[in-house]
């Protein structure tokens, strides 16, 4: 079961520069654990205290996973996952 994951520029240090990688898992949480085994360090940039980091956006088939169950969002073969850091800041 292969799921394509789009990696943002800032995290490509973990993927040898690859713009996308593939992984597997029945949920986002499983997918991230699977990616971590091939790309150590990646998980910590996405997850904090068992939840997605506040300023990291993850989309499954264009849906922000915050609206579809977060890390428990279920995945199936052929799903497209995109990781994008928030563009945010403030005075």
């Amino acid at each position: 079961m292969a799921i394509e994951v789009r990696i943002p520029t800032i995290l490509r240090t973990y993927t040898d520069g690859a713009k996308s990688v593939s992984g597997e898992g029945a949920s986002l949480s499983e997918l991230i654990d699977n990616l971590e085994s091939a790309h150590p360090g990646l998980k910590d940039r996405l997850v904090e205290d068992g939840d997605l980091r506040r300023f990291v956006n993850v989309y499954v088939n264009d849906e922000d996973v915050r609206f579809t169950g977060g890390l428990e969002t279920s995945l199936s073969d052929g799903d497209q996952v995109v990781v994008l850091p928030a563009v945010a800041g403030g005075a």
Partner: peptide
């Protein structure tokens, strides 16, 4: 130009759906 989803004088954040569309 993007919408500041935070609508705040001290913070800005691109709306997550618009961010994906933009990228």
């Amino acid at each position: 130009p993007m919408v500041n989803a935070a609508g705040s004088p001290t913070f800005y954040e691109f709306d997550s759906t618009e961010l994906l569309a933009l990228y």
